[in-house]
């Protein structure tokens, strides 16, 4: 974890995205259908960063969009899909089957141990034996060893230090103190484990005035992007956009049709404000009355 003492880290989406470099290990916050930093991922696609290595537990839209946008080389998430609403992740599946992206599927707990080892500053953490899982074959860096205390077989999970964690918060201040929103999933651990954290937030204020989940000194950049998780949810402010995801899935059937999606929603809008004009934000805000 780096230390970032500066008092004002507020910057534009474009500027913050430049902090992500080709080949970086990136941890996107949130999970599956909630609180993923999608506005930031759209900007990464526009900037054309290459060969990112994503780490995280069970995710969906974020990883599939990033893979479809051509910015990912390795996926170490433990699950990538759309559950029973929309099924398999089309771009992810196609890219892995065609050998364009390497799937280094991990288990949730081994992934967490890797992040936790990085957060603790130790080279590895011992995990209970799971050598019978073929997940081990995708991770030659996991080493079987004999416990010096009990003699039992354990698996050493090496520290996994993301170059950058990108977390979407509900509220942040310019310094970087941030309040995320439930479900918290692995966000706090990701911030602790990563070299730097970028916060995108629904709203950025001068002074937070309440206890943050993420303290400012872990944070290198703060960006204000309302509806920045769209089409994933940020509860209680808005829910996930099923209509948008349905359109996404439809256009993801082939790389050619997916280009239409990218043109309409990623390359087309001049700014995030323009993007939001394509979305029925009122409907998503009023989800509780559906």
């Amino acid at each position: 974890m780096g230390i970032y003492p500066e008092p004002n880290k507020l910057m534009a989406l474009e500027e913050a995205a430049e902090l992500v470099k080709d080949g970086d290990i990136v941890a996107f916050g949130g999970a599956l259908s909630v609180r993923e930093p999608i506005a930031f991922i759209r900007e990464l696609i526009r900037q054309g960063v290459k060969n990112l290595h994503t780490v995280g537990t069970a995710h969906g839209f974020d990883i599939d969009l990033a893979v479809g946008g051509g910015i990912v080389g390795v996926v170490q998430n433990t699950y990538v899909g759309f559950e029973f609403d929309f099924g398999l992740a089309p771009n992810f599946r196609r890219a892995v089957e065609q050998g364009k992206v390497v799937s280094k599927e991990d288990g949730c707990n081994s992934l967490i141990y890797g992040l936790r080892a990085a957060a603790l500053g130790v080279p590895f953490l011992p995990h209970l034996n799971f050598e019978t899982s073929d997940i081990m074959k995708l991770h030659p860096e996991f080493k079987k060893f004999k416990c010096p205390i009990t003699g039992q077989t354990l698996i050493a999970i090496p520290a996994l230090e993301p170059d950058v964690a990108i977390l979407h918060a509900r509220l942040a201040d310019k310094k970087g103190n941030a309040v995320i929103a439930k479900p918290y999933v692995a966000d706090i651990l990701m911030a602790r484990a990563s070299k730097k954290t970028i916060i995108t937030a629904e709203k950025v204020v001068d002074k937070l005035g309440k206890e943050p989940h993420i303290p400012y000194f872990e944070v290198a950049a703060v960006v204000e992007v309302p509806f920045g998780a769209h089409p994933t949810a940020l509860y209680p402010d808005y829910t996930y956009d099923k209509d948008h995801i349905a359109e996404y899935i439809r256009l993801s059937r082939s790389p050619e049709t997916f280009r239409e999606y990218l043109d309409k929603y990623v390359y087309g809008p001049e700014s995030h404000e323009e993007y939001l004009k394509l979305i029925d934000t009122e409907k998503l805000k009023n989800w509780k009355t559906w």
């Binding site: 892995v96 288990g107 949730c108 209970l128 799971f130 899982s133 997940i135």
Partner: peptide
């Protein structure tokens, strides 16, 4: 199997993944 149909070197279908299963099934 929640990971792939085929083999590691020749993936016919990439399934979504086992999420916590690889570790939790041993715990």
């Amino acid at each position: 199997n929640n990971t792939l149909i085929g083999s590691i070197d020749d993936i016919k279908v990439k399934l979504p993944g086992g999420a916590g299963g690889a570790n939790l099934s041993c715990e």
